[in-house]
Nucleic acid binder design. Structure first.
Lengths: 310, 310
DNA sequence: TATATTGTTCTCTATCAAAGAACAATATAG
DNA sequence: CTATATTGTTCTTTGATAGAGAACAATATA
């Protein structure tokens, strides 16, 4: 007898991924295996669930109904198993995460190492990318997002505020005056992050008024680390989240400009599919990260504050 | 990854069967396999579901909860699969039946052969016994019962009325007078079915009055075929269901006595566990049998009626 | 029209589950 | 109270089978 649950799981994944190849990729098995599971399932039921050309998959009516029931069943199994183990156990399986590139590379490594130390049976599959992946479609358990999001399909758990700062290398100002107002930035070499939806640099001035400038980008790049290193090398002025530049600020490689202005903040969030049941490993990881990135003051803010004091 | 559904199914069966050995027997696998499935499941969950000594099984609290959820899930899977196939398909799997001995041997053979011809993927496991098996405990899909039952735990579908007749061999009356009233039977050699709950022979007389006699059993036996053959051989008078003796009546080997009395009738029923979902093969078999044993007039009654005409 | 990508099919292999015997533990019978 | 039967576990051997990987067919896209 074949493994019915595995067949159902495969079927669901194929539908959500949109193709057999993608589902195979996500499940880390050969696509021949996925193809076989699917056709075995259909043979057993004697019904075609997916009308497939080589290029496109379409749910049949039977398939649509079976899909819904399969999801229910898979969730029920998860629930049954986790209630059986109680709170203490069964944090296991593969955790599929998508994370913004720079933030992930700079701050996720130790967090994940610690989480995996706590839960030896968890494996992790991370996709670093500044493209916002479709969680369901991509088969991700959760994603990190740095945005002021209003995504409706997903549940979101705020992690911490992301402050920004305008910084440049001290050497950059050897022959230039420090800016006094945001407008002064327009005269300088601004290095801009091209991934942002808004090409302006938005601020609140010391007297509480909102404002924005549209910097003339000397360089556009879709990678924060690149912009940071360029600024450190004296390439110009950047507007970047503090998590990216705190080390350079502490070391003095970068100095903050227009300190009394408050540059548009973002929120770091964990997003995950709004499902009535969340696998234990996902819940555990969310709780862990929430703890890890102290909501009020993440460690990079503390380090900056300390450096300023000295 | 192990087959979670198979583990759940095994767990449920072990609990209902009351022992690992019995469950293995019912599932037609080695008990070592059942034992392993169970301990694998517990290991995976990290929880003991069944506290087992070598002699007794006890559900733990976790086990009790997991049992209920497992049943739900297994039923959900069945439902999902059969709705997917629609009405037309997936009548397959092993049909576990328990049937009364004589009735089963005389009348079930062609019925089951026909059913299996219609549904090639069905296998059948029959237990012939006049002991009323516990369906759930014994892991049966359904049972045939010949009784005026009021069993509450089970759902029942009436098949047909079972008429009775008092018969004996013509040769038996070579030197005896035929009985005129039930009381006259007390003077004859009555051969009694010892499996009945009631040791009396109950009747309604031609004028509509109820009555009963307590025959003095010359022979007690718990097998109807044996009693029939004994009567044919001239051993005495029997009170037996017509399904058992119709051939002998038609052939003249047995003659009916006290024809104008109506001897207590029984009802042939199919009983099955009152579950919210019935596997398709079970439903199909029930429908088939209902059709097969025409409720109003089963074929043996028709044959008797024909023989009487001639 | 050429190319890339998709799903299927095939064979080969490694894995894993079941069988079956041997064993340990515990009711039951005499 | 001892002998026996029955139960669940453990171990090794064996067989089935699911997955890998390549080759293929079909279809979008450039």
């Amino acid at each position: 007898m074949s493994d019915k649950l595995l067949e159902m799981e495969t079927f669901v994944r194929v539908v959500e991924a949109g193709s057999i190849s993608a589902a195979a990729e996500q499940m880390s098995v050969a696509k021949s295996a996925v193809s076989k599971r699917l056709s075995d399932l259909e043979a057993r039921l004697g019904v075609q669930l997916l009308a497939r050309t080589t290029r496109r998959l379409n749910l049949t009516d039977s398939g649509r109904a079976f899909l819904a029931q399969s999801k229910e069943i898979l969730a029920a199994v998860d629930i049954a198993e986790s209630t059986a183990t109680g709170s203490r156990g069964l944090i296991q399986g593969k955790l599929r995460i998508t994370s913004p590139l720079t933030f992930g590379l700079m701050h996720l490594n130790p967090a994940i190492r610690e989480f995996m130390r706590l839960h030896p049976d968890v494996r992790v599959d991370i996709d670093f990318s500044d493209h916002q992946r479709d969680l369901v479609h991509g088969g991700y358990d959760l994603g990190l997002r740095i945005a002021n999001l209003g995504d409706s399909q997903l549940a979101a758990r705020p992690l911490t505020q992301i402050r920004r700062a305008i910084v440049a290398s001290p050497s950059y100002f050897k022959d230039k005056a420090l800016p006094k107002t945001p407008k002064d930035l327009l005269e300088l070499d601004c290095l801009h992050y091209s991934g942002a939806s808004d090409s302006r640099w938005v601020y609140i001035s010391p007297n509480g008024q909102k404002g924005a400038i549209e910097p003339i980008a000397r360089i556009n790049a879709n990678n924060g680390a690149f912009l940071r290193d360029m600024a450190i090398a004296g390439g110009g002025v950047i507007n970047q989240p503090t998590f990216n530049i705190y080390q350079a600020i502490c070391s003095g490689e970068l100095i903050t400009l227009l300190d009394d202005y408050c540059w548009q903040e973002l929120t770091a969030c964990i997003v995950y599919p709004k499902t009535h049941y969340l696998p234990l490993r996902v819940r555990a990881f969310i709780d862990f990260l929430t703890e890890y990135f102290d909501r009020d003051e993440p460690y990079w803010e503390r380090e900056i504050a300390q450096a300023v004091k000295q």
